[in-house]
Measured scan of single mutants.
Amino acid sequence: MDPFVVLVLCLSCLLLLSIWRQSSGRGKLPPGPTPLPVIGNILQIDIKDVSKSLTNLSKIYGPVFTLYFGLERMVVLHGYEVVKEALIDLGEEFSGRGHFPLAERANRGFGIVFSNGKRWKEIRRFSLMTLRNFGMGKRSIEDRVQEEARCLVEELRKTKASPCDPTFILGCAPCNVICSIIFQKRFDYKDQQFLNLMEKLNENIRIVSTPWIQICNNFPTIIDYFPGTHNKLLKNLAFMESDILEKVKEHQESMDINNPRDFIDCFLIKMEKEKQNQQSEFTIENLVITAADLLGAGTETTSTTLRYALLLLLKHPEVTAKVQEEIERVIGRNRSPCMQDRGHMPYTDAVVHEVQRYIDLIPTSLPHAVTCDVKFRNYLIPKGTTILTSLTSVLHDNKEFPNPEMFDPRHFLDEGGNFKKSNYFMPFSAGKRICVGEGLARMELFLFLTFILQNFNLKSLIDPKDLDTTPVVNGFASVPPFYQLCFIPV
């Protein structure tokens, strides 16, 4: 058959498939802009700032609406009420993970971030239990974070109060905490193996944040037939998995079943207990991918939040002064901060919360999916439909947070200066898919920041009023603009 005829037939089939998918069930789905064949609503979305586009569309179609990214149908949730109703009140029905062709290629359905069903539930339950087990290797997770915080302070001392970009050092600290939990080992910041790991993690975040990856996920045929950065992403992930597998083999040879040292040991012990169960989800494949998931999810998000926190503290020296006064009063100079201190430091706690609220790190979270046909607000959402959640619409709700575009710790303080919780605080998402490392991340943010401010004054290279804190939105995360500062020993 003539190649031209084959091409026309293929394009015609794709067009018909697109029209059929977009028209099927439209009477039951939430409203939304009319999609174009094949490309859907992509032309109506700013790929570099999806969150802003969703906010604009919500003003037209309401808090629940339908979009098509290519052939992929998505239902968008915008605003606290619908997000709570879906992710919390109907948590089980909305607990699936959205379709990610690239991740599915890399992870093969294993791990904790992109798995679904029984596998996801069992691996998540085990990971939560293990991360909360403060007795691994007779050292609590808090001990590990405190140790890394001391190392971080010593690295900052080496800058000798000269101007520096904190990106690298602030990236090393949370990565080392995860390494300590998974591998029972922290690395020197100049260790070549550690630097290679950091390089792969950072490069992957840069790649994932590009519009090209959005295109690959919406048109998965590209993955096999086109060159691009997605190939580098898959190569980096394969490198990390190979490295983790080597460490798993080392653990198998040296493990003491009665004295687990780290996450890998705990997983291997669980595998041993379930070795007679042919349906067990505790396999080497799941261990390797879960460890890679924890490394990827637990490094860049925390380091970016820390980097943004220091920029905001530079911009608002009056806030920094209040935090340091609270540190001096509650902790002093002669001991290290600990998590028990947080309950006695409402202002510092409010500042950490406000940093996370203000920066809105992951504006749309990772997409969910419905696990069955769901009736939601008089609409029928078919099983498997991807759910896109606007966390921006919750964290920047102007009824809950007056002047949401302003950095103001009073958003989390009552009139008496006591810490005030808010149900709208969802930087880790909400419901059954809430970030498994939430507790660890909150511990790291509090301890790293208090250790830094206990030991250093922060000095800006320019007038604080002239510092730009506008986030650089890159399609996946909101990151701070480049800046330098000086760490002046107190």
Rank of each mutant, 00 (worst) to 15 (best):
K322I: 09
R124M: 00
A430T: 13
R97V: 03
L17I: 15
W120A: 05
P409N: 02
L29G: 07
L312D: 00
A106R: 08
S365M: 04
E285Y: 06
I331F: 03
F267E: 01
E72T: 11
F263P: 01
N41H: 02
T301A: 14
R124Y: 03
A369T: 12
L294G: 01
S280W: 04
G343A: 14
L67M: 11
C151V: 09
V145F: 03
L268E: 00
M255T: 05
D360Q: 04
L152A: 03
E154P: 02
S12A: 12
E203D: 12
L310T: 05
A291Q: 03
R329Y: 10
S242G: 12
F239Q: 13
D243G: 13
L361Y: 05
G439W: 08
D397G: 03
L314K: 02
Y189E: 04
V8A: 13
S429F: 02
I169L: 15
A149P: 01
K270I: 07
R105M: 07
V8L: 15
N423T: 13
F487M: 05
V83N: 05
E250P: 03
M345G: 01
E400M: 07
T348W: 02
M406I: 12
E154C: 07
P480G: 06
A321N: 14
E253V: 11
G135S: 14
D256N: 10
I141D: 07
M426R: 05
D265E: 04
H368E: 01
Q252W: 06
N258G: 10
T469Y: 09
L11P: 00
F126T: 01
Q214Y: 15
E246A: 14
V208G: 12
D408C: 07
T299A: 12
L152K: 00
K383A: 10
D262P: 01
G417L: 09
P346L: 04
L395R: 02
A106I: 12
C13W: 10
I244F: 09
G25L: 06
P166A: 07
D265L: 00
L43P: 09
F419M: 08
P480D: 03
V76I: 10
A149W: 03
T371S: 09
L461H: 09
I462T: 13
F134D: 14
N176K: 02
P163S: 09
